[in-house]
Structures are given as structure tokens and as C-alpha cells.
Design a protein around this nucleic acid. Structure first.
Lengths: 350, 350
DNA sequence: TTGTATGCGTTATCAT
DNA sequence: ATGATAACGCATACAA
């Protein structure tokens, strides 16, 4: 005979025994199931009963035990965020976006930074997903481009949404920005100002984002009737130092480029650094455009013109796809980036 | 009569029915409880049985269901990180540190950005902790300074550790850096180089970190036998713009300060911006020291001398205090910051 | 519209 | 050293 009753006063030292559905049922004089119906907003329920139970719930400060719910429903309420730290601002923006969506739901956000170069990457993530029995995961670039990883998630019965700069997946499992077009527009702005010798710092090979930006650049040049000059194109690894080194090469070119598009802000900052060392005035003698709109962009001098992903809305949408896949809102997969025009760009010197 | 058996082949479409403790028990020919003992490494257990069961576990790829465990043990395995975005780099460093500790445990990290100015702050957090039934939480500055919030966590039976720049709590519930002393040393470096007119940009009132840095600055001056000059002290709100405005005031002072300590990097970047606009050469005519060593610090020009918190080790220690409070490692509460010397500081002009 | 019996996967109690 | 059985808190199937 199970005892359903509890002491009215919790024993001292015990971590505040919380009221359960049984307490609510007993006090309001109904069955557990009825309380359960109230919690789950079942439509077939007497108005009077509902209000009575709700009153008791409020009075007791009853909060349904998510673990018990998860057990009974055989599904958890955890959204996983798996990333390999693309940049801090992005990760934080993503977290904020996810939280906007899951606020006022039962879902929580659990994060998992990983090392994409670790040989145990897949095993680690498998263990993580299985152990926590995640409801769904959001993959950030660049590991969102890893198809093996995506297959793993699916194998584990864990829905996923990938964030990226190209069509990595179908629209139900993707939030993407149009990097290619955004770069094309950035280049169009430069050419519109009269720039003809435009340098390019590519991102690391193997990154889809790097590839897309590269294509966008080439297309942008083509649209303006310009021919790509191999001497004005170089490659970095998205880090500051590589941008600095890229700068050394580009600024050695003769004649020097009057503008440079860098595939991300950090490398752009490195380039700026190199230009400054040589006494090259930015933007008078050299215009610079970056990509990402990280915190650095607005805080260096001159402030950096850059392309900004709508990170927060994208992440919010991604979370929406995870927890409400059938909703109409969950169909948007493409999010437009915009060019943030700051002081690092000017017309070329006469 | 409960049926304990399962089909050998999972039904198609069903999200991969995972093996349970019952499966393991049945196949290895022991009781659930014995399997449970194996999982929990109970000492009183036959070696033969243990190995037999472990073999089956490995073969089946059995992973214990954390939700069920949480339910039975009446405690969850979630560590919460509650913060009001002090800065992206710090939050990410903290996440990395926590993860270092909980990797290879059953714990997971769930994050919760909040708005410290929201009137619903306490209610939101209460609901979050109750709903997720967090095992413990880590509070980041500045909300770690909120004693009401700390009391709330305790009331909810949720252990907490606070991160801060002063002794907010006893050593079991605190990881702190010695901001005051770090600033004192930074000032000592400046005075050692010969600076006598040193400006100060304080952080916002109400922040413990701001107060500590202020005190450290005053003490540093005193140690060098210098008298604080009210005209050289101003206050910002930790944002770039306020640093810029502070710069306007400080650089108007006559005679101009030869060095300025800013209570964080963002404001230092703003100050640098202001100096540049006036054609003041940094560091030749003006030395600048910041605080935090954010990504900005190393990427502006000149690279910023700054004070760096050992964020990752601090967070790792904090997580350790949460999940292994009795461990000896959990006793360290104070972590020393160090001065990162970069090009933004030079001796004053003759 | 509401209640009863049972299951979810694990641990705890108390046997043997 | 191992096992039978009852929790843990909630949801579902099926009655009533």
C-alpha cells in the first residue's frame, strides 16, 4: 500500500521537499490524472475543476518534475548547442537567440564546445547525445558542415538544425545566410566607389563559408567587369595573425590594391595592423571590408565596414525548427546578411 | 504482469529504442539491482558477475537513462550558468572551464543569459532552477554580487558558486580574482616607468569589480607617494562609448595625463579612439592600461596592456566546487590575475 | 468529464 | 554477494 501523504512541514535539512502532482490531487480532491490534464491544458475538462486545481497549484507553488515527465514521455527537454567556437560573439548571440525561443517553454539549453580536430569528436558527441538524451541539437559552423556528424545525430534519433553559409541540408534542418550574395554586394559597393584593384583574403580551405565568400568575391568582380588578379588574392585561416601576413603580401603588390575584402573581421584587423605599420592610411589609401561584425569591428580604428549575419534571429528560428517543426515559422531557412557601412571604406585616391 | 522482453529488432520509424537496465539484466542473467550495482561501481560485488555484466553492457551499448536516475535519486545532473553577459569572451571561457571539469562525468551544462535590469529577474531564475531542478549554479559577475539571488538559490536547495572580484562569500561558494592587487601592480608599473600624472576611468557604481579596481588604483598611487587628482578621475559604464567620452574629459585636462588606467578594455578602446582623433600618439604621448584581456585588447593598435583573469581555471574550479565540494581542490577560492604587457605602455615623454 | 491501473528506467529497502 | 519489490513523479490506455 503506497503512502501518498506527506508531512506538512518538510523535515529540516532536507532540500525542501517539493509538492508533487499527488499533493495537488489530494488537496484539490481530484485524481492525479485530472491534475495532469490541467498541466497539459487538455481541452476536455470542466471549467470549475480546472480553476480549482489551478488555484491549488498556485497556492502550493507546484512545478511539474521535468525528469519524471521526460521519463514518462520518453523524450527529454534539452536542446543541445554543439560548436567549435567560431567566435565568441557568435556563440553568445546564438545562445541568446535560442533562449528567446525556449523562454516560457520547458526546454533548456545545454552547451557543448568541442574540438573539431579531436579524433574522438564523433564518439564524444555520440556519448553526449545518448547520455543526455537530447531532444535536438543545433550545429554551428564549421562543424555544421560535417555530414558524418549530421548522420550521427539522425542515427541517434535526435533532430538537428545546421547553421551555415550555404545549403547544407533541406530547409527543415537548416538556417543559412547568403554569404555569397552579401559579399557580391560588398564588392559592388567598392566598385561603385571606383575601386578597380581590389584585394582578397580568403578563409581556410575546407570551410564552406570560405568557399562561398570566395565565390561571391569572384562574382562581384565579374559583375563590375573586372578581371581577378592572382597577385591580389591570398589566403588566411580566419585568425588575426594570418590576416597580418596576408597584408604583408597584398601591400607588397605593385600597384597596390586600393581596397581589400577580408573573409572575416579578425583577418581584416590583422590587415589593418599591417597597413598601419607601413604608414598606409585607412581608408584614404586603402579601404577594408571584413565579415562577421564581431565586437572587434566596431572598436578598432577606423571602425570596420563588415557583413553582419542576423545571428540572433537565425538562432531563434533554428530553435523554433527544433521544438516546433510543423509551425509555419519553421520554414524560413534563408536569412539575409547586411553590409554595415563604417569608416574603413572610402573612394580610391585620385 | 509486466513484460520485460523487447523485440530484438527495433520497429522501423521508432527512434531507436535504446537498451535498458532490464535488457542488460535479462541477457546477463542477473537482477536489475545487480546491474545497477555494476553501473554505480558498488564495492560489494563478485568479480565474475561484474565482468559478465560489463561485457553485456559494452555489447549492447547500454547507456543508463539519466532522467530515470535523476528521478530515483531525486537530484538532477545539470549545472546552470547564469549570467548577464559581462563580455562574450568571458562567458565562453567560463563555459570551457566548466566543461573541462564535467567532461567524463554525467553532468551537463545548461546556460541561462538573463537581464539584470528586468523586474522579473528573480522570478525568472526561480522558475528556471525549480523547473530544471538544477544541481548547482554558477553565478557570473555582476549578478554574482546580488545577495538576494544567492539567497534564492540556497532557499531552493541549489548549491551555488559565485565568481567575483572580491570576497562575496565563503571559500566553498566563491571563486575570486584579486582585482585590487592586480590594479595596484599595474599602477606600480606605470609609476615605475616614471609616470606621475595618471588618469583613471572607473567602472559603473554598484559594481563590486569597479569598486575594487578603484581602490586598487588609489592604493597604487599612494604606494608611489602620488596624490590623486580629481581632474584625472572619471567614470564610465564599461562600454566603449563611455570610454570615448571619458577620454574627452581626461585629455582636456591640463597638463594632460601621461597615462590612463581604464577599468576595462572596452572603455580603454574608447579612450584610444579619442586619443587618436586628437592626434595623440599612443604610447609615446599617452600610455593606456585596460582590464579583462578581451579579444579586443590584442587586436587594436597599439595592442593593449591589460589585466587578465585566469577565467578558464576559475570556472573549472567553480564547477569542481559544485560537484565535488568535499574535494581538497575545492578549497582554493582566490585566483591571481596577471598583467599582460603589450605595446600601449611606454615611459612618459621627457 | 473524470478516475483506475499500469508503465517509464532507475535506485533503495530489506530480504536471503 | 544477490534478488524481489516498492518507490520516484508523471503520462497513457482504457474504463466508467
Amino acid at each position: 500500500m503506497p503512502k501518498e501523504s506527506k508531512p506538512d512541514v518538510p523535515a529540516a535539512g532536507v532540500p525542501t521537499a517539493k509538492p508533487t502532482i499527488n499533493d495537488v490531487a489530494r488537496i484539490s480532491g481530484v485524481s492525479k490524472k485530472t491534475v495532469s490534464r490541467v498541466i497539459n491544458k487538455s481541452p476536455l475538462l470542466g471549467q470549475a475543476t480546472r480553476e480549482k486545481v489551478e488555484a491549488v497549484i498556485a497556492e502550493l507553488g507546484f512545478v511539474p518534475n521535468l525528469q519524471a515527465r521526460a521519463l514518462a514521455l520518453r523524450r527529454n527537454f534539452l536542446i543541445g548547442l554543439i560548436h567549435d567556437n567560431p567566435n565568441a560573439q557568435m556563440v553568445l548571440g546564438v545562445q541568446e537567440g535560442i533562449l528567446q525561443t525556449i523562454r516560457d517553454t520547458e526546454f533548456a539549453l545545454v552547451v557543448r564546445p568541442v574540438d573539431r580536430h579531436s579524433p574522438r569528436l564523433l564518439d564524444d558527441i555520440r556519448h553526449f547525445i545518448e547520455q543526455q538524451r537530447l531532444y535536438g541539437v543545433l550545429l554551428l559552423p564549421p562543424i555544421s558542415e560535417n555530414d558524418e556528424l549530421a548522420a550521427l545525430c539522425r542515427e541517434l534519433g535526435c533532430t538537428l538544425v545546421r547553421m551555415g553559409s550555404a545549403e547544407l541540408d533541406d530547409e527543415a534542418h537548416l538556417v543559412a545566410s547568403n554569404d555569397r550574395q552579401a559579399v557580391r554586394e560588398a564588392v559592388a559597393w567598392l566598385t561603385g566607389l571606383g575601386h578597380k584593384r581590389i584585394g582578397f583574403i580568403a578563409g581556410p580551405t575546407g570551410f564552406r563559408s570560405a568557399y562561398e565568400r570566395e565565390q561571391g568575391f569572384a562574382e562581384g568582380l565579374a559583375e563590375a567587369g573586372l578581371t581577378p588578379d592572382p597577385a591580389l588574392a591570398t589566403r588566411g585561416d580566419y585568425k588575426f595573425e594570418s590576416g597580418y601576413e596576408a597584408g604583408q603580401r597584398l601591400l607588397d603588390a605593385l600597384p597596390r590594391p586600393t581596397a581589400v575584402f577580408s573573409s572575416n573581421d579578425e583577418m581584416a584587423a590583422g590587415l589593418l595592423h599591417a597597413a598601419r605599420e607601413r604608414g598606409i592610411d585607412v581608408p584614404a589609401q586603402l579601404s577594408i571590408i571584413g565579415f562577421d561584425d564581431t565586437a572587434i569591428a566596431a572598436h578598432i580604428w577606423p571602425p570596420l565596414t563588415t557583413v553582419r549575419w542576423p545571428i540572433v534571429p537565425m538562432a531563434a528560428a533554428a530553435a523554433h525548427k527544433l521544438i516546433e517543426p510543423s509551425d509555419a515559422l519553421s520554414r524560413q531557412a534563408l536569412f539575409l546578411s547586411d553590409l554595415v557601412r563604417r569608416a574603413s571604406v572610402a573612394p580610391p585616391e585620385a
